[in-house]
């Protein structure tokens, strides 16, 4: 077992275990922390794939941004000590069955499919190349998605403010 494989096994185990814990934990803050672990492990996977930039973004935006946001909203809306009620048996069984059926279906499909691995030399993906591509409108240029995502973020920001803002007449 090479180092890479070991790393993958560890990250994979961490991701699966913490994912399951995220969706089953009965304390909401713990859920959030488990989610953080999943996201960090995913970032580790990205490092493994040699995508340093994306891994960094994953850590900053996901782990640093979204999870913190989620924790804040938890603090605003829930009591930390509160434990969730146990989920109904029927609901658990049916949801679990659906999820397991989905897993089986996808995995069997994946295993049946032949992926043609190429032998092309990997392109160097350093920051400079990414930056240039983002603002390039020629071939391999992503200026349009870049602009679209900028507008989306702006709109989301405004929308979040408008929605969350207290109305003047609304009671506190």
């Amino acid at each position: 077992m090479t180092g890479n494989q070991l790393m993958f096994a560890i990250f994979g185990m961490l991701i699966i275990i913490f994912s399951i814990l995220t969706v089953t934990s009965r304390r909401i803050l713990r859920s959030a922390v488990f989610l953080l672990f999943v996201l960090v492990s995913t970032a580790g996977l990205y490092f493994m794939l040699n995508y340093q930039f994306l891994a960094a973004v994953q850590l900053t935006v996901y782990a640093g941004g979204i999870v913190v946001l989620i924790i804040f909203s938890i603090l605003l809306t829930s009591h930390i000590s509160e434990k969730f009620e146990v989920v109904g048996m029927k609901k658990q069984i049916f949801s679990g069955l659906a999820a397991i059926a989905g897993i089986i279906l996808t995995i069997s499909t994946i295993l049946q499919t032949e992926f043609k691995a190429t032998e092309v030399a990997a392109k160097e993906v350093d920051m400079e190349a990414i930056g240039l591509s983002l603002l390039n409108y020629g071939e391999n240029g992503f200026v349009l998605p870049f602009e679209v995502i900028s507008i989306l973020l702006l709109a989301a920001m405004i929308a979040a403010i408008v929605i969350a803002k207290k109305g003047k007449t609304q009671k506190p």
């Binding site: 991701i15 994912s19 969730f84 989920v87 994946i110």
Partner: peptide, 27 residues
């Protein structure tokens, strides 16, 4: 990835708290 995906789906279907549902979506 697919295991993680369906764990997220499972969470979406079973959790009651809206924030935990949001976390499932993140997964």
């Amino acid at each position: 990835a697919s295991v993680m995906f369906f764990v997220g789906i499972y969470g979406f279907l079973t959790r009651r708290n809206l924030i935990t549902i949001l976390m499932s979506v993140e997964l």
